[in-house]
Design a protein around this nucleic acid. Structure first.
Lengths: 193, 193
DNA sequence: ACCTGAACACCGTTCAAGT
DNA sequence: ACCTGAACACCGTTCAAGT
């Protein structure tokens, strides 16, 4: 069966999930797919382009309960609903990245270079337009939320690497950073709504 | 003259500043210092350890006007002073990183793996202890500020790379992200004090 | 259209051996 | 103590040539 861009991306995601970024090389990917390295370059222009697709894939399942009506942020109930929905989306980004090694680095980089390629960024933006945030600050607010999420995930993934086998210590670090995530998210959402 | 760890780190900083992270290889560094690659490994254990030192070096000049008296956050004036000082420190981190290509990536990684090696992180922590932030949230608050700063710098550095020669467009992107930085910083500081 | 084979120009790390 | 020389096991990217 012929190679497709989708199978290349999916295999890349699998390698990242199982072995981390250090083992996600074009050569390793080619070996996994039983082709020569050169074959990959028929389907993707570069490793960087591939990593953007990998990041997009990792964030593909973020729920998108777009506001059904035109919410004008005049109504307090509506603002509360949007705030709650933002919290849900942020948590689901967090949960999607946490189990994938080095995913925070990949997404951080993809978000900085090609944010429009990440569905999750668009979802955050759309929700933020329904809050009393000036239109010129939507981008800033999106970045603020995203940097908080991937920043904490990066800390968590690196710390988990560092403690190694020590299950007890790993759990402590995990709990502490999870709470940092929750606390910071509340502070930021408070600042926005 | 014999090689020292300091000259290795300083040369690494120079290479990063002039050519970016892609050209900061151990081999390139050795060539620059007129030694064999192996010589570097007498002075640093690994490239990762070297990069932590590079990050620390980039943030070495952050001002540290520690509160002279014991400020107990009871006094409104004192809180205002600490808030102002936090703003100064955040701006000086921003300004220190901005002109150094890929420095946001390097610092992001160093902060996630060995935050205690970065003086700037300690300075932020100390200032935050003088705000009405619960002691258990000091770490979370430090992370929130730091992720915002390096996140925006990363966006800015990547966007500047992307627009390339177009000076006018570069300036527009620069101004927009600078404003995002200011706006986000105010929101976060408001949430803390 | 899609892939192979082979090359080009690199990497980080280790280590016996030299001084 | 500090460094060389040389090796080991890799990288990303390109491209003529094959099918």
């Amino acid at each position: 069966m012929a190679l497709t861009r989708d199978t290349v991306v999916e295999t890349a995601v699998r390698l990242l999930t199982q072995y981390g970024l250090a083992d996600l090389s074009m050569r390793r990917l080619a070996r996994e797919l039983d082709v020569q390295v050169g074959a990959l370059y028929w389907h993707v222009a570069s490793k960087q382009e591939l990593l953007v697709d990998v990041a997009a894939h990792l964030l593909a399942k973020i729920p998108d309960n777009a506001p059904s009506q035109e919410i004008t942020s005049a109504n307090d109930d509506d603002v509360a609903w949007v705030r709650q929905e933002l919290s849900v989306v942020c948590h689901s980004i967090f949960d999607a990245l946490l189990p994938i090694p080095d995913s925070a680095d990949v997404v951080q980089w993809a978000a900085a270079t090609r944010p429009e390629a990440l569905r999750a960024v668009g979802i955050l933006r759309d929700l933020l337009t329904h809050l009393p945030v000036e239109p010129t600050r939507i981008h800033a607010a999106t970045s603020l939320l995203l940097h908080h999420i991937v920043g904490i995930v990066a800390e968590l993934q690196n710390a988990t690497m560092a403690v190694g086998e020590d299950q007890l210590e790993a759990r402590r670090v995990n709990d502490r950073l999870r709470e940092s995530f929750e606390w910071g998210l509340e502070r930021v959402l408070d600042a926005l709504a």
